[in-house]
């Protein structure tokens, strides 16, 4: 299976990546190779194999429901490009 330039452009847009024409060509080739490998893996019979959600064969440890973090807004906002009244400011977004 190979993917077209249009597919690369779509994926790049979703990931908010800007790619030059050259990079798009390169990405199309690399992704096609990856898909070919996946096709090959798909041909293995996995009917009796349970789906794996994680590469480690382990289960999640849980955390007690207690507040352990304190307010560090002043420290954290020092590294933000712009803040006002405690808010982080970003270029205008509106639906």
């Amino acid at each position: 299976m190979s993917i077209e330039l249009g597919d690369v452009e779509n994926i790049a847009h979703l990931a908010r990546l800007h790619l030059s024409n050259e990079e798009k060509q390169e990405a199309a080739g690399s992704i096609s190779n990856i898909l070919a490998l996946i096709d090959q893996m798909q041909s293995v019979d996995t009917d009796n194999v349970e789906p794996l959600a994680h590469a480690f064969d382990a289960v999640q440890r849980l955390r007690e429901d207690v507040v352990t973090e304190s307010n560090q807004r002043d420290e954290l906002q020092k590294i933000a490009p712009e803040t006002e009244e405690g808010l982080y400011l970003v270029p205008k977004v509106i639906e």
Partner: peptide
Amino acid sequence: FHGKSGIDL
């Protein structure tokens, strides 16, 4: 916010 959006997380 002077043409910007404010974010409260």
